[in-house]
Design a binder for these strands. Structure first.
Lengths: 134, 134
DNA sequence: GGAGAGTTAACGAAAAGTGTTTAAGTTCAG
DNA sequence: CTGAACTTAAACACTTTTCGTTAACTCTCC
């Protein structure tokens, strides 16, 4: 049974990059060209993008797209945005302000640096008012 | 630029399945055999599993390596190991015993045969006490 | 200008994924 | 038991991905 989308090579490069190494330094370590490190890193990012998109599709199977929280939004402004959009389509969100903030922080921890949404977050909602973030 | 992991065929089958159709009904609609619908559905689920695993790998990049659960370990012994290691580095795990077991079973179903961890599992932990398994 | 970091394009070989069929195998309600 | 729904395995053609090379390219900083 296979692992995730990323190859050993791709994970290796991402780990070194996380440590702050340059492509040339990594190329020396793993004995290849920096051009190759670049393409490996690039395809790794592409695979990650596809993984995210795949899970977004899953959510859309039983949820509809509600809105996008733009990168840079203050976390505390998010509930008002979502409540407003949900009201437009007559769906009652099943979270109050506090639990909604907890919900998004647990669902997308990598998008929440302190109080700031650090990348665009797509919001999906079911008829039951359940929320998904992609 | 490519879409997510799922092929058109796979998304098609998943949508029909979501509507409650049987594999035979879908096979008739998309003009193929029911066996093929089965394999398409199966590979779709496999792709979804891999997408989840890929994103979990991303999270491990932000986490530190905590310990390794050796192959053959009893699943019920895992929480004690993890709590012990986390205590050593003064991080409070955000799961209790039961939810920790559920967490690892959901995260690495292929590693859990009955009560046995069937391959080495690396454990990563964030400062917030979130756990990831790789 | 030159050095360092990163990106891109074109190409080949090896590996992996996909759709399909055929055939044999469950599982389970009636 | 029978039949319907579903699963599994092997084999095939086909396409895509991945890793690698070489070489040329942009940017930025000094």
């Amino acid at each position: 049974m296979k692992d995730g989308l990323l190859t050993d090579r791709q994970m290796e490069v991402l780990r070194y990059r996380k440590q702050g190494l340059t492509q040339q330094q990594i190329a020396d370590i793993i004995s290849t060209s920096k051009a190759n490190v670049c393409t490996i890193e690039k395809s790794a990012m592409e695979n990650i993008r596809r993984a995210k998109e795949t899970l977004e599709f899953l959510y859309t199977l039983d949820a509809t797209h509600l809105c996008v929280i733009p990168e840079g939004t203050d976390l505390f402004e998010v509930p008002a945005i979502i409540f407003g959009e949900a009201e437009k389509i007559n769906i009652k969100v099943k979270y109050d302000t506090i639990s909604l903030i907890n919900r998004i922080r647990e669902s997308r921890p990598q998008c929440c640096k302190a109080r700031c949404i650090c990348e665009n977050v797509h919001v999906y909602i079911t008829d039951a008012g359940e929320l998904y973030f992609g």
